[in-house]
Amino acid sequence: MVEVRLWSSLSAAAGGKTTLDIQAKDIRELFRTLAEQYPGLEPFIAQGIAVSIDGVIYRDTWSKELPEGAEIFLLPRIAGG
């Protein structure tokens, strides 16, 4: 079980919850479980969500493990120049 924190726009789509407890061992499981438990998040997941694990931002690595006790923060997928 990991504690996942949401940025505010995502929080609104998750019924106002800013923190979710999710059973997931990696990013893929996290997205799958989030979509199942909070269908309102699906459009955001489809559009792309970045996952910050202890301050390091991952955009594409499904297999990245979510360590127990790590700070997991969901962020919008950002653009660069």
Partner: peptide, 9 residues
């Protein structure tokens, strides 16, 4: 805790 959310390393 950064202003955009996560805690900095």
């Amino acid at each position: 805790q950064s202003s955009y959310g996560p805690v900095y390393g």
